[in-house]
C-alpha cells in the first residue's frame, strides 16, 4: 500500500494551501494599499496637464517668473515619490507570489519523489473529507499561475509609467483596476473552502 507516500503528499498539500491562504490575504491588503496611490498618481497627472495648458505669463501669476518651472519640478518630484512607493508595494506582491510559487513547486517535488508508489487510483481517490490529491495539485497550480500572471501584468504596467507621459498617468487608476481578475480570486477562495476540512485533519 502506498500510504506513507500519500501521507507525505498530503502534508505538502496542507502546507501549500496554508501558504496560499496567508498570501492571498497579504496580496489583497497590498493591492488595497495601491489603490489610493494610483488615485494620487492620476491626480498629479491632471495637475501637470493643467500646468502645461496654462500660460502663466498671461495670468495674474505672471509676477512669479520661475513659478512654472518650480511647480513643475515639485509635481514631478511628487509623482516620483508615488512611483517609488508603488514599486515598494510591488516588492511585497513579489514576495507573496514567490512564497506561493515556492510552496507549490515543493508539493510537486514531493509528488515526483514518490511518483513510483503513487498509482492513478490513489491520486484520484477522494473521500468525504478530502478532495483527491490530483485535484488539489491542480488547484494549487492554478492559483500559482494566477498570481504569477497578475504580478507580471501589474509590474509591466507600472514599468510603463513615466512622469512625462501624462495621458498614461491620467489613466493609471483605471488601467490598474482593469487588471483585477475577481473571478480568479473567487476561484481561489472557493478552493480554500473546499479544502478547509482537509486542512483541519492531520
Amino acid at each position: 500500500m502506498s500510504k506513507p507516500a500519500l501521507l507525505s503528499l498530503h502534508q505538502a498539500l496542507r502546507k501549500g494551501f496554508q501558504t496560499l491562504e496567508s498570501n492571498q490575504k497579504l496580496w489583497r491588503s497590498v493591492l488595497a494599499e495601491c489603490t489610493p496611490l494610483m488615485v494620487s498618481l492620476g491626480n498629479l497627472a491632471e495637475q501637470l496637464r493643467a500646468l502645461s495648458r496654462v500660460q502663466l505669463s498671461n495670468t495674474p501669476l505672471s509676477a512669479f517668473p520661475d513659478l512654472q518651472q518650480c511647480l513643475h519640478f515639485k509635481l514631478v518630484q511628487a509623482t516620483d515619490t508615488v512611483l517609488g512607493k508603488l514599486s515598494e508595494k510591488m516588492s511585497s506582491l513579489q514576495a507573496a507570489r514567490d512564497a506561493i510559487s515556492n510552496q507549490v513547486s515543493g508539493v510537486f517535488q514531493v509528488y515526483e519523489q514518490n511518483m513510483d508508489s503513487l498509482d492513478l487510483l490513489t491520486l484520484t481517490e477522494r473521500s468525504a473529507t478530502a478532495p483527491s490529491a490530483a485535484d488539489m495539485m491542480e488547484w494549487l497550480q492554478d492559483a500559482e499561475r494566477h498570481y504569477r500572471h497578475q504580478y507580471l501584468r501589474r509590474k509591466t504596467l507600472l514599468q510603463t509609467f513615466r512622469a512625462d507621459d501624462l495621458s498614461l498617468l491620467e489613466s493609471a487608476p483605471k488601467r490598474w483596476e482593469s487588471l483585477a481578475s475577481p473571478s480568479a480570486e473567487d476561484r481561489i477562495t472557493d478552493t480554500l473552502f473546499k479544502v478547509s476540512l482537509f486542512m483541519e485533519t492531520q
Binding site: Q47, A50, V54, L56, T59, L61, C70, L71, K74, L75
Partner: peptide, 13 residues
C-alpha cells in the same frame, strides 16, 4: 487655472 492655483497651494513650489 484653478487647478494650477490649487497645486501652487498644495505643493509649495
Amino acid at each position: 487655472l484653478c487647478m494650477v492655483y490649487l497645486s501652487c497651494w498644495l505643493h509649495q513650489p
